[in-house]
């Protein structure tokens, strides 16, 4: 949906390093190396009152389990593969902050970082 809140674009980090944006919900993401990630939700993983067995702000988890029904047939949360790709960029943003950086501007998927050890 269009929330009708148009304004200056959000920051790179607000997507590429945010578990909330990815659909994992509020919590902490940690990089474990070799493309593996861990996520610790800051919400209770169960809600007895509502009879739910997932955090309220989560749509999915890193394993790709989907918790909620979405309102359209072709609508889905990101899958684990997509999440990893998005989060990988988040690791670059430490040094290459945005598109004013020539590396970002000219980035192609096959490029490897000479500094960061995967």
């Amino acid at each position: 949906m269009d929330p009708h809140a148009t304004g200056k674009a959000r920051s790179c980090l607000s997507c590429h390093a945010s578990p909330k944006t990815l659909g994992l919900g509020y919590g902490t993401l940690s990089y474990l190396g070799k493309g593996r990630w861990a996520f610790q939700s800051s919400e209770r993983s169960q809600s007895d009152l509502l009879g739910l067995d997932f955090p309220l702000s989560a749509l999915t988890n890193l394993k790709g389990e989907i918790f909620v029904n979405l309102s359209r047939e072709d609508l889905r949360p990101f899958n684990p593969e997509e999440m990893k790709r998005i989060l990988r960029v988040g690791l670059c943003l430490k040094c290459h902050q945005d598109f004013s950086d020539p590396v970002m501007m000219n980035w192609r998927p096959e490029m490897r970082c000479p500094v960061f050890k995967e």
Partner: peptide
């Protein structure tokens, strides 16, 4: 900030 997801071939707000 909104959560994003995929609708068809597009990244949209959920």
């Amino acid at each position: 900030t909104p959560t994003l997801g995929v609708k068809g071939k597009e990244i949209v707000i959920l």
